[in-house]
């Protein structure tokens, strides 16, 4: 089981019952890239918390910095956040090209 899991890239992991495709959540963005937040897929308490920190639908988020395994630095409006990739994966985005 363990060995199988390690071969599944993060972008195919099921989050909140949905399979997120490539470029569809915040954790898939590269340094410097921007996207518009379309939703947060998490239990109520966690969604509330992410929202109160500024991650709201319709806002633009930019990835400022990613460490290889550790957290990412995200800029939303006037505020800079650091968040884990696993949490960034809860935030769905559209690149809106």
């Amino acid at each position: 089981m363990r060995t199988i899991l390690t071969y599944i890239p993060i972008r195919h992991l099921a989050i909140a019952g949905k399979t997120l495709e490539n470029k569809c959540n915040l954790s898939c963005l590269k340094t410097g890239e921007c996207a518009c937040i379309t939703g947060i897929h998490a239990p109520d308490g966690i969604r509330q918390r992410l929202q109160s920190m500024g991650l709201r639908t319709g806002r633009e988020a930019q990835v400022i910095r990613c460490s290889r395994q550790g957290p990412m630095q995200i800029r939303v409006g006037s505020i800079d956040l650091i968040m884990r990739r696993s949490d960034a994966a809860r935030v769905t985005i559209s690149t809106g090209q």
């Binding site: 239990p43 992410l50 800079d80 956040l81 968040m83 884990r84 949490d87």
Partner: peptide
């Protein structure tokens, strides 16, 4: 825990 790790980075 499934606590999100989200922290504000002040200037």
């Amino acid at each position: 825990s499934d606590e999100p790790f989200v922290l504000e980075l002040p200037p």
